[in-house]
Amino acid sequence: MEKHRHFIIHKPFGFISQFVNNKTRKKRLLGELHQFPEGTMAVGRLDAKSEGLLFLTTDGKLSDTICSSKVSKEYYVQLNGEITTEAVAELESGVEIGFEGKRYVTKPCSAKILLEAPEFSERSKKIRDDRHGKTSWVSITINEGKFRQVRKMTAAVGFPTLRLVRVRVGNVQLENMEIGAVEEVTEFKVF
């Protein structure tokens, strides 16, 4: 029986969560960061503008488990403007977003204002600074993963996302991984 291999990566801004680009646009691929074994797949995608913790595995069953609603995903999100407690309460109770051409109400989640900006390395593409208006940070933890869901949620309550970093999946934390770092892990426990 073939032994599956598992990796965690701190996905940088500008990379897509795949190994093949079928579009004509030039996108940076995960294979540029590390030589992964054949059959490796990204588990739960992060779009090109998003950063943070990404799992990679050769085990399809594990991929399905991590993508399920059983496993929570936490994001630190920098927002355009100073988010209000009312907007955080809206996020927590569920907001209406567009998904696959239809209106969708997100499931209840956990959201809280971060009083201090998290310490992340500077992003390769600069984010506007406070001269263009205040920004704020929130933590959002969801158990679902619709297409660009967190970005759509913050926009729905009037605070568009400027930077999005996934910091936790299940009980696995991003912690102090450098941007672009890849670690092979032998045990992959997300609960």
Rank of each mutant, 00 (worst) to 15 (best):
L54F: 06
F191V: 09
E2H: 13
G98N: 13
Q18S: 11
V20Y: 05
L164R: 10
V169G: 01
L174N: 02
G60H: 07
E183I: 07
K23N: 15
T58E: 10
A87C: 07
D47S: 12
D47V: 03
A48V: 10
E92F: 05
S50A: 15
L33P: 00
M1Y: 11
K27L: 02
P160T: 12
I113T: 04
H6E: 05
D129G: 07
M153L: 10
M1L: 10
M1R: 14
G170V: 12
K70E: 15
I83E: 08
N143C: 14
V167Y: 06
I97W: 04
H4M: 04
S110E: 14
T106L: 08
I66F: 06
R25F: 03
L56I: 09
T154F: 07
L30V: 02
K11L: 10
S17G: 02
F7L: 03
E32I: 02
K27R: 14
Y104Q: 14
V169A: 10
L62V: 09
K146G: 02
K112N: 12
Y75A: 07
V185P: 03
D129A: 00
K112M: 11
H10D: 01
G60T: 12
V185Y: 06
N22I: 04
P108N: 04
Y104T: 14
S121E: 15
G170R: 04
R166Y: 11
A48Y: 13
V43K: 01
K189I: 14
G94A: 03
T65F: 14
I9T: 00
T58C: 08
E86I: 11
L54G: 01
M41I: 15
F147G: 01
E100F: 00
I179A: 11
V88Y: 07
R168C: 08
E119L: 14
E82Y: 04
T106H: 03
V157A: 06
N176L: 01
H132K: 14
V77E: 08
V165S: 04
E178Y: 02
T57K: 07
C109W: 06
F120R: 10
R148T: 00
L162R: 12
E74I: 05
V77W: 03
E32A: 00
E82V: 08
A156K: 09
E119P: 02
S69Y: 06
E178W: 00
A111V: 08
N176D: 15
I97Y: 01
V182R: 04
K152E: 04
Y76A: 08
S50H: 07
K73D: 10
F159E: 07
K61S: 13
I66Q: 01
R5H: 11
I66E: 01
E144N: 09
T57N: 07
N143Q: 15
T135D: 10
I142Y: 05
K3W: 01
V77N: 06
E184T: 06
K126L: 13
E2S: 13
F120N: 07
F15E: 01
L29Y: 03
T161K: 08
T161A: 15
S139T: 11
E144T: 09
V95T: 05
D129Y: 11
L162G: 02
Q35G: 05
F7E: 02
G31Y: 00
G158P: 04
V88C: 12
